[in-house]
């Protein structure tokens, strides 16, 4: 009798266990986790591991034999060139993002006002700079600015003006790298803003019109508030990508003249790979991570907050 009871208990426990396992696997969260597992592994391998490895590298000495803590960073803080690169990266990123946003905003409105029939053509053409690999399009720009064969200088000289040292003068060189970045990046803003514009309900514009709102009031109280989240997210992503830019400066100026067009990535490459000081290069490339992270947290929190309010 006791035996029979024990046997039935064990069977019940087994059935219970099977049942709970089954329930676990049937749970939506488990299925979701399993389905995202490949992506999690991919991110862990391709993002988290390199990120932590970069932190590890940044804490080694020049010959990578000794742990030196944060002394690579304290060394950098004492270098005049480092602070120059910080300033240049900020000028580069802030100016470029500002102009990309302005141009993207204006062009998005222009495209939005084109009748649907011809709009696709314009959208496709305007996206071309963003679609071409930046290293290739920057090479074309390099030829346009070339000291011997510059097409721009040829035009200037043919109308009696003197040529411009596009990449040889500090201010012109900075202008050129920002110009190319804006040329490549503005279509991204344009397409994001266009998508946002299309999602604004027509009724809001009709209501504004009935209320007698003029163009500026419609823009201020309808269009911009409705686009705000997209504007913030686009600006945030673009700022991060622009701060991390490498190819434009590398192809166009390599940081010249006098290091005055270097940004974090190009200077990190110069010191880390070309100069054989990988820990210092890693430290330079990690410098912006905490600042951008804090910025990203605030902006994303604001977006989520407004999303919840809505």
């Amino acid at each position: 009798m006791v035996d029979a009871t024990m046997k039935s208990d064990v069977a019940a426990m087994r059935a219970d266990k099977r049942g709970s396992l089954q329930r676990t696997f049937q749970r939506k969260s488990t299925i979701a986790f399993l389905m995202t597992l490949p992506l999690i592994l991919l991110i862990a391998t391709l993002v988290l591991y390199p990120a932590f490895y970069a932190v590890h590298l940044a804490m080694l000495n020049k010959t990578m034999e000794r742990f030196v803590g944060l002394s690579n960073f304290t060394f950098l803080f004492k270098r005049e060139t480092f602070w120059m690169v910080v300033m240049q990266s900020c000028i580069f990123a802030i100016t470029a993002v500002f102009f990309k946003a302005i141009i993207g905003f204006i062009v998005a409105h222009l495209v939005h006002n084109i009748p649907d029939k011809g709009q696709r053509k314009w959208r496709g053409m305007l996206l071309v700079p963003w679609v071409i690999p930046p290293a290739m399009s920057t090479l074309a720009w390099l030829w346009l600015f070339d000291p011997s064969y510059s097409a721009f200088n040829w035009i200037l000289e043919s109308i009696g003006l003197s040529g411009v040292p596009w990449l040889g003068d500090v201010y012109w060189a900075r202008f050129c790298v920002i110009l190319v970045n804006v040329w490549i990046g503005a279509p991204f803003f344009m397409i994001m803003y266009l998508a946002a514009l299309k999602s604004v309900p027509d009724q809001l514009y009709e209501a504004a019109k009935i209320d007698g709102a003029n163009w500026w009031q419609t823009m201020r109280f309808v269009t911009i508030p409705m686009m705000r989240n997209i504007i913030m997210i686009t600006a945030l992503f673009s700022t991060i990508v622009t701060f991390a830019n490498f190819d434009i400066v590398r192809v166009l100026t390599r940081g010249d003249p006098l290091d005055q067009t270097h940004v974090f990535a190009t200077w990190a490459f110069r010191l880390g790979i070309e100069g054989g000081d990988i820990p210092l290069g890693a430290s330079i490339s990690l410098f912006m991570v905490p600042i951008l992270t804090v910025g990203a947290i605030f902006i994303l929190r604001d977006i989520v907050k407004r999303g919840n309010e809505a």
Partner: peptide, 14 residues
Amino acid sequence: PPDVASWDNASNNK
């Protein structure tokens, strides 16, 4: 020339 400060290895050849 005024822009030698930014010449690359191909600029002098060109």
